[in-house]
């Protein structure tokens, strides 16, 4: 069988000459066929970049807008709502799962505490999510490469591979990760049939809507934000996002840690 032979070659090659040779071997195996070999490719509409990033214009956001954004994200990705009514207040806090959520300035920017902060900023709601870091500590920590950084900069989870050790949660300086402490399915109000749910025992977080980018759509939060969130390629100097970054002063969360967050905030 063609595929099992390829599989065998891969495994044998890895075992014999070490991991470095494996890509070469599978490349040879893949190109060895004649003409009509089954193959895979990206969709024609897929959006690509070198480092996806976001600029969040916090001046354009209010509670209602943020609620809509959070709902759009959580609905799209079947994020369970483990609410206090269902499991009690204490359990709800512990078992909570969130990809994107609202918080205060002093929670989002813990290393920038102005003693005398503008009242308006203190009141203003802030949106926080995974920063898709340039140097992600979670990826470094993961013992199975279940969390990894894609060539387009997205830090993404392979839920199939996650063993639930939660090293990534300890490593993340932004508290962006949630762990399925229980089966999430009973807590999903409306299931989005186009996206899988998760199983208990795996970590999850924002995936920058990789599944939407693949079919040419912007991330759900960007779409729901009505212009308050701009997304684009941070490495492309001609991109819209770079234009916005040139025009506005922005800050990033805990930039001093050297993780290189790809989410910028206009204050």
């Amino acid at each position: 069988m063609e595929d099992s032979r390829r599989q065998f070659l891969k495994v044998a090659g890895t075992a014999a000459v070490g991991l470095s040779a494996a890509p070469a071997i599978s490349a040879v195996a893949a190109s060895g066929g004649h003409g009509a070999q089954p193959h895979v490719r990206k969709g024609a509409d897929a959006l690509t970049a070198k480092q996806w990033g976001l600029v969040i214009d916090t001046t354009k956001l209010d509670h209602e807008k943020i609620e809509r954004i959070v709902e759009a994200c959580h609905k799209t990705h079947n994020v369970p709502d483990i609410s206090a009514e269902k499991v009690g207040e204490k359990t709800a806090v512990r078992h909570e799962i969130k990809w994107i959520w609202e918080t205060h300035f002093h929670n989002a920017f813990t290393d920038q505490p102005s003693k005398y902060i503008s009242e308006e900023v203190e009141e203003r709601p802030f949106l926080v999510l995974c920063n898709h870091c340039e140097e992600p500590p979670c990826v470094q920590a993961c013992p199975t490469e279940a969390t990894f950084k894609r060539p387009d900069g997205i830090v993404i989870m392979d839920f199939h591979r996650c063993i639930g050790c939660r090293f990534c949660m300890a490593a993340c300086p932004y508290g962006s990760r949630s762990f399925n402490l229980r089966d999430p399915r009973p807590f999903i109000k409306e299931t989005n049939l186009a996206f899988p749910t998760r199983t208990k025992g795996v970590v999850e977080k924002c995936n920058f809507c990789a599944e939407r980018l693949a079919v040419g759509k912007p991330p759900a939060c960007v779409e729901a934000s009505e212009g308050a969130i701009i997304f684009g390629d941070l490495e492309d100097p001609h991109s819209e996002i770079r234009e916005v970054l040139r025009e506005h002063h922005t800050i990033r969360r805990k930039a001093s840690l050297g993780t290189g967050p790809a989410v910028y905030y206009i204050i």
Binding site: Q7, H39, A46
Partner: peptide
């Protein structure tokens, strides 16, 4: 095996289209 390859390709390589023979 096919599904196993598919899930790796989709999640890890971001290639979502399968073209058969």
């Amino acid at each position: 095996q096919l599904l196993d390859e598919w899930r790796d390709t989709v999640v890890r390589k971001a290639e979502r289209i399968y073209v058969n023979a």
